[in-house]
């Protein structure tokens, strides 16, 4: 059979396959109808076969190129991205993440780095002898002034409108910092820098506000108690997951760097997901409860309860199980 004849015979099939590709673009597969879908699949397989035999048919190169493109387009319409599956994400968040975090050296290391820097910075800012200017240098005097200004008055609630706005701001702002910590961890240095900077800054703010001669101090502590556990855990968690990413291409455990990186990313992203949930909870508490006029014991109870929940999450759900009990 001559090529021209063959092309004439196939042309109709190919053009029809092309039409289907056009039709399916940006639509759900089901909208095409069962008969058309099976027709589409048959046409696709036929085009695949034509491409496979192109060499022995001696098709001209431009037709072969056309077939490559056509098969590529049809392939992408047939094999489609899978959607988010909420239940499986929930299982990952509730069972896999805590177990992974429990054993994750990077998260533990980041925990130590973050809290070590935090406590050191707080001590330096608190003490007037060790490094008298530390608080001013770390926080800048403008920041100190605005901190003192903000917490000048006892916390007595504010209009609910402002609560909503601030909750939105905390979600946007804090979660973005967490995500940046995570992404920056891939290159190790930026991630460490963001984390250390945040730890030092927060530590200095706590240390300075805890000084007995700072009038706004009690109000400040009153404000931060309730949302502290969630927020600080979330930042440690995102930085730890980021560090895990960065370490994965430095220490590959026998895999290629690329394989190690992609395997780790699939494990680390859910940890970041858990951190995002915590950021969200912290933002809600920070937006609505922390600035409210509720007495201190309520806020302290919330802090204790949320710490308890985190303990439960990371220790009870996270304790390593025998493989027979392991989920997934």
């Amino acid at each position: 059979m001559k090529v021209a004849e063959l092309l004439e015979k196939r042309r109709e099939n190919w053009l029809q396959l092309e039409q289907f590709c056009e039709q399916m673009k940006g639509r759900r597969l089901a909208s095409l109808g069962a008969a058309n879908i099976s027709r589409f699949a048959a046409l696709y397989r036929a085009a695949c076969a034509d491409l496979a035999l192109a060499d022995s048919y001696q098709l001209p190169p431009n037709t072969v190129q056309y077939l490559h493109r056509l098969v590529g387009r049809a392939h992408n319409q047939l094999y489609r991205s899978r959607k988010f599956d909420l239940t499986s994400w929930l299982i990952v968040l509730l069972f896999e993440v805590p177990q992974r975090v429990f054993n994750d050296r990077c998260v533990q290391l980041m925990f130590c780095i973050f809290w070590g820097t935090f406590v050191l910075s707080a001590a330096l800012a608190y003490s007037k002898q060790l490094w008298p200017d530390y608080a001013e240098q770390m926080l800048t005097s403008a920041q100190i002034e605005s901190l003192e200004e903000n917490f000048k008055n006892p916390i007595a609630g504010r209009p609910s409108e402002a609560n909503f706005v601030m909750a939105g701001f905390y979600i946007q702002h804090n979660t973005s910092i967490g995500l940046r910590c995570f992404a920056g961890g891939l290159l190790v240095v930026p991630g460490l820098f963001i984390t250390l900077f945040n730890a030092a800054f927060l530590g200095a703010a706590f240390g300075y506000m805890a000084r007995p001669d700072v009038a706004a101090g009690t109000n400040f502590l009153h404000f931060v108690t309730a949302h502290g556990p969630f927020e600080l855990t979330a930042i440690v968690l995102s930085a730890g997951a980021g560090l895990r990413l960065g370490v994965s291409w430095l220490k590959t455990n026998g895999l290629t760097r690329e394989a190690s990186l992609s395997k780790t990313a699939e494990e680390a992203m859910p940890i970041m997901g858990a951190a995002m949930v915590m950021f969200f909870l912290a933002a809600m508490i920070e937006g609505f409860l922390s600035p409210s006029a509720a007495p201190y014991w309520v806020k302290a109870t919330v802090a204790v309860l949320s710490s308890g929940m985190l303990m439960f999450y990371f220790i009870v759900l996270g304790i390593p199980r025998r493989p027979s009990n392991a989920v997934g």
Partner: peptide, 22 residues
């Protein structure tokens, strides 16, 4: 970097016209 981490790539998906035999 983001592509390397999750093993993805971005490809062109262009339509080419069937030219047949010259």
């Amino acid at each position: 970097l983001g592509d390397l981490v999750c093993r993805t790539m971005v490809v062109m998906e262009e339509r080419q016209w069937l030219a047949g035999v010259a």
